[in-house]
Write a protein that binds this DNA or RNA. Structure first.
Lengths: 194, 194, 194, 194
DNA sequence: AATGAATGAGGATTCATTCAT
DNA sequence: GATGAATGAATCCTCATTCAT
């Protein structure tokens, strides 16, 4: 059955399987074999296309970040004023795509992976910087010098939403999570610029 | 040289070694052998005292939570009014004992461990509930019905401080981290009760 | 681009690539993939032409022996008297074609391969017998019954030259290696026939 | 059944099993599993005591060299005059201990291993230097400046004996091999010093 | 109380080889 | 004629865990 041009298909299947598997297990302690099996191929092929386990994880992480980034960018297109720019980012963070059990589990695991893996750390920092920058860009006109700190806090509240969702017994829905962060945003906006 | 009552000494040594080792590696992927070695004993003895690797991790986790809880309680003793109760918890969270590389790394790893280990999850939830409860207790007189949400946000900001400390390139000092959370607290207090 | 009569071209390319690869690695632990890559084709094609890895090695071995044999024969054509027959073989053994890093490495590896591969052993013995025979043919008129032993010793000294070249830190040049064996030959000739 | 002080016993068993296994297979392509099994233990234990496959091979090689060296030294003790010093080395080289199928196979394999393994090469060179030095020491009083070259040739003839034994169809016995080298030695001695 | 000894189980990785196109 | 696709089979190695002493 080997057709031509399978590489991108296989890679995508592996990335998705990786996220699913991590989400299911809650750990990075997932065998390449399981991932490959779930992606419908042998582990040898997975190695062939990615080189090694870490590379598979990195690719999966990159995919999560890419999708999230795309969604943020998409939402930003529609944003007319500064405030709605910030809102766009917050909403994208809790969209149905990103705010799902398995994706959240992947997120947390990658955060921890970044503690011991230089490439993972690099990737995470790039993404973090981008998000902060986007947030600041929206907040600066409204809050001036306070923009940086508030951006940081918004990021923390978003992470907090993820954590609660993953560990909490109660399943939070995205809308509720968005509301919480938005309330904080409003509070800061009321206070005004420094 | 086996003396009487070695058990508590051994256990403590293992728990400390575990935290140190996790902090150093940034992962739970630490061998029992290394932990035992660092604690000055054979891995067989570690198993003898704890039963298995998971139990060692659980004990280490319990220790981290216990120390943190004790520090919070200690700070609460000195708190006269509601606001300072809340402040006490925040300050304790960033004390020199808890806000250290290795302890933070352990924290994050335990968070992720909770995704796949029921006992770990249980432990974490108990502690979370206690902290939230303490925060609410202090916030209720000041914020009324809004206390719960604000408590949650404060918790999120504290976690945010930990994350920034562990992953960020710049080392944050405890005082700065405290200030950030306090500013948020003041903002909410200005706004007043619902 | 498949043209007619590609087979001999492909085979030759593979054989040369095999020798080069073995020479570079110093081992038979060379993947078919690398060999094929170096020969400018896919490993599947290599299998198509040779059947399997061992066959590739055998072919490479055969090639080394063939080239060496040809050179010996070529030198023998010019040899007028018995002594120069022997000399011709010795000189051919250290010619620029055979006395090269990669060829020597291949040689040694093939020697060892003969320990575990019957076809390789057969091949090697055929060649050895031919060389001994050639040497004897030249030595008999000069040394009589002693020819056989001396031929054996000359062969050993040639192998010794190869070993020194491959393992020694100092690079020996062919001329020096030839001289060593010739000195031994002279010594035996001085002594005369038995 | 675990008793104390097993390490040296296990190591020795592994070294012997390694040589036997290599001798039987004719290759270094021998699995750690087989070696360990032959030595009566699990492969995990083999790794525990040696670290890795290469280390096992190196240890085996070191053992072969050590035994050979000891035998040479032993023979040298009995040597009264220079000539018998040289003779001692030659005889030791073909003693029943060293001149055995399996040991010879190990030798050849290690020669080839030295082409690609730096530690193996180092080991081999040390041994070679020692043997050459011993030979020279005995030859110098007899041959003066020619000692070095003759030593080299004797070494080559010894290697030649090994090769013939391993590849040849006819089994050579040690006595015959010794005689061949001794004849060469006599020839050089007749000729005298330079 | 304490440990060296020992192993089973499992996992990442590699590679020769096959096959459909 | 040629290759990308694919895999089964092996192999090294690690590690938690057990046990006799």
């Amino acid at each position: 059955m080997p057709r031509l041009g399978m590489e991108p298909i296989r890679r995508e299947a592996l990335v998705k399987a990786t996220i699913a598997e991590i989400g299911e297990a809650g750990t990075l302690d997932v065998t390449v074999n399981r991932i490959a099996k779930r992606a419908g191929m042998s582990s040898a092929l997975a190695h062939h296309y990615f080189g090694g386990k870490d590379d598979i994880f990195l690719a999966a992480m990159r995919h999560v970040l890419t999708v999230y980034g795309a969604e943020v960018r998409g939402a930003l297109i529609m944003a007319a004023d500064p405030r709605s720019r910030v809102e766009a980012i917050i909403r994208a963070s809790f969209s149905d795509t990103s705010f799902r059990q398995e994706v959240i589990a992947a997120w947390l695991n990658f955060y921890v992976m970044a503690l011991s893996s230089a490439p993972a750390k690099r990737l995470l920092l790039i993404y973090q910087r981008r998000i902060r920058s986007n947030l600041c860009h929206g907040l600066r006109p409204l809050l001036g010098a306070r923009a940086g700190g508030v951006a940081e806090n918004i990021a923390a509240l978003i992470d907090g939403g993820y954590l609660r969702q993953s560990l909490g017994q109660e399943t939070v829905d995205g809308a509720k999570a968005i509301e919480i962060v938005m309330q904080y945003l409003d509070l800061e906006l009321e206070r005004g610029s420094a």
